[in-house]
Amino acid sequence: MKGILLAGGYGTRLYPTTKAVSKQLLPVYDKPLIYYPLSVLMLAGIREILIISSENHIGGYKSLFGDGKEIGLSIEYAVQDKPKGIADAFIIGEEFIGSEDVALILGDNIFYGLQLSKLLMDSVENLNGATVFCASVSDPRSFGVIEFDKNGNVLSIEEKPLNPKSHYAVTGLYFYDNHVIEYAKSLNPSNRGEIEITDLNNIYLRKNKLKAKFFGRGMAWFDSGNCNSLLDASQFIASIQKRQGLYIACIEEIALNKGYIDLSQFKSLIKNYENTEYGDYLISVAKEKEGV
């Protein structure tokens, strides 16, 4: 399976902060926002990744990650000239996806939880059509809202409904089979002039090929597209890391634990973070692996 990380858009909800910098390069506590969705793809076992962003910001991601080889990945880049909807990512990424299945994650989404890695790997291994992830929210009117029957089967998905049929919002993480390319191409733009991810999901729903998985208690999801949610996410990350002494979305550590790089390669990365707390954490990970 391949992965697409969509880091486009104008970030207008964060103006003036994002007038000169991409939203996904803003810090969430001690690392760039984009580290968090990238780590999710890595935890799912995905190593071939396409980052999509605007012409103005794509260079920042290339400077940050390069070709991804340092952390055992293969990272490519593509430009979205203007926001055309989330589903547009599959049209832009058609050549990259090729004949494989694909996961898509939004660049401003953060996920955390003890069972996250297991949930992701299970979704990759048992994909049959499309899988979306949902979480309970207090006010679902700003999201795609998913309705279930008593057996947990999906009945409907509505985009930003005035009268939501449930409190479950569809998060910015999706897994699709290879038919997603042709389905995305068949979509007509909405009133917003975008091809909507909800319309794409409804195609799978009509074909009885849409599965939804829940982020329940003990799982955290942040849609960090505005100042308040960005602050909430930073405070959450800081609290967990300070209490546990374990870093969230440390992509070098994930690469080591997943076997994408060996300990020697991991140790060579530490020099990039000399005299930083992040570097100190990497040193502690290396020592633990060596049994020091």
Rank of each mutant, 00 (worst) to 15 (best):
N191E: 07
E159V: 02
I146V: 15
I97N: 11
L230A: 11
E159N: 15
N275Q: 10
E147S: 14
L73E: 05
Q244L: 08
V292W: 03
C227K: 09
I86C: 01
S53A: 12
P27E: 05
V145I: 14
G3C: 10
E252G: 02
S22I: 04
D108H: 13
L210S: 04
F90L: 07
E253V: 00
D88N: 14
Y247T: 03
K160L: 02
D108V: 05
L173C: 11
Y183T: 01
F215C: 10
Y278P: 00
L210K: 03
A103V: 07
G259E: 07
E158L: 10
I51C: 10
K2D: 02
G218Y: 06
I91K: 14
N202Y: 07
I157V: 15
S39Q: 03
N201I: 02
S138T: 05
R141I: 05
A169M: 09
F65G: 10
L162E: 12
L5T: 06
L106M: 10
E194W: 13
S63P: 06
L73W: 04
F65H: 10
E55D: 10
K289V: 00
A89V: 08
S53T: 07
I203V: 13
I86D: 01
G68D: 04
D149S: 05
P16Q: 04
K118L: 02
L282A: 06
V180P: 02
I4Y: 11
L6H: 07
E76T: 12
N163G: 04
I251K: 00
E76M: 08
C250G: 02
K207C: 06
M121S: 10
S229Q: 05
I270H: 01
V79N: 10
F111H: 09
V292C: 02
V170D: 05
K31D: 04
I4L: 14
D262V: 05
N228M: 08
A255I: 01
I46H: 02
E147G: 02
S63M: 08
I240D: 02
K207M: 13
L14K: 11
